[in-house]
Computed example of a mutant assay.
Amino acid sequence: MSLALPRLLQLASPALPVGAYTYSQGLEWAVEAGLVHDQATALEWITGLLEHGVGRFEAPLTACLQRAWAAAEEREVERLNADFLASRESSELRAETVQMGYSLRRLLHELDDFALPEVFDALPEVSFPVGWALAAAAWEIAVVDSLTAYLWSWCENQMMAALKAVPLGQAAGQRILLALGGRLPAVVQQALELPEERWSNFAPGLALASSRHETQYSRLFRS
């Protein structure tokens, strides 16, 4: 049996100590504003971001990062890392990926399962997709599988944020995940085929929600 699947499950696990559970990526403000208030509106919000935001920029970028790591294209890794950091629309979203990237970089050092490239430590700030893609490449996980798991992990974290912030029941959360899971194959396929000139991070609703979350009076989450 290949180790790729167990390694992928570990990488996508909510137990991965990178602090993902502390972020809602603007969802908490959407709840505060009344835009998200039940299962249907939570699914609509998360689906919109999956298909028109994360799926059209972060996902294809992460796939390219994994290919770059596998081919030892260090300059490409540096370029894509800089592009992703520059794409964060608010200070909270930028701080989120830098914090999670820092935590994952430290974890990969502590796991000592493979030799880390020097450029990985040389990056002053490492975004989360860079660390994820490096682990997936080192563990020889197929790009289609690693990207599916990356997006699943994102969906799961958004669902958990909705459970706490709306709040929603556990069954509602599982119905949301079931619906999102059904959309993942098409989102992944599009991300793998989308040329870089067509990548798009245009999600003004997310940018506004994230910016307004920074001054939200009562908060459970860090973004």
Rank of each mutant, 00 (worst) to 15 (best):
M1A: 15
S2P: 11
P6M: 00
L8G: 14
L9Y: 14
Q10A: 11
L11F: 07
S13P: 14
P14S: 00
V18L: 10
G19W: 13
T22L: 14
Y23E: 06
Q25H: 07
L27Q: 04
V31R: 07
E32G: 05
A33L: 10
V36L: 11
D38V: 13
D38G: 02
E44V: 08
L49T: 00
L49R: 08
E51V: 08
H52D: 09
R56F: 02
A59V: 05
A59Y: 02
Q66E: 15
R67Y: 08
R67N: 10
A68T: 13
W69Q: 05
A70V: 13
A71H: 13
E74P: 03
E74W: 15
E74N: 10
E76R: 13
L85P: 08
R88F: 00
S91A: 14
S91Q: 14
S91L: 13
L93T: 11
G101V: 07
Y102C: 01
R105G: 03
L111S: 02
L111Y: 11
L116T: 12
P117I: 12
E118Q: 12
A122C: 07
L123D: 05
V126A: 06
W132A: 08
A138G: 02
A138F: 00
W139I: 00
W139D: 04
I141Y: 00
V144Q: 15
S146G: 09
T148N: 11
A149G: 01
A149S: 12
Y150N: 06
L151R: 09
E156H: 13
N157A: 10
M159E: 10
M159L: 09
M159G: 01
A162N: 07
G169P: 13
A171K: 12
A172E: 15
G173C: 03
G173M: 08
L178C: 11
A179N: 12
R183E: 03
L184T: 04
Q190N: 15
L194S: 00
P195R: 10
P195S: 11
E196F: 05
E196R: 13
W199F: 05
S200F: 00
S200H: 03
F202T: 00
A203Q: 09
G205T: 07
L206K: 05
L206Y: 09
S210A: 14
S210E: 04
R212L: 14
E214Y: 04
T215W: 08
T215M: 09
R219K: 12
L220E: 09
R222S: 11
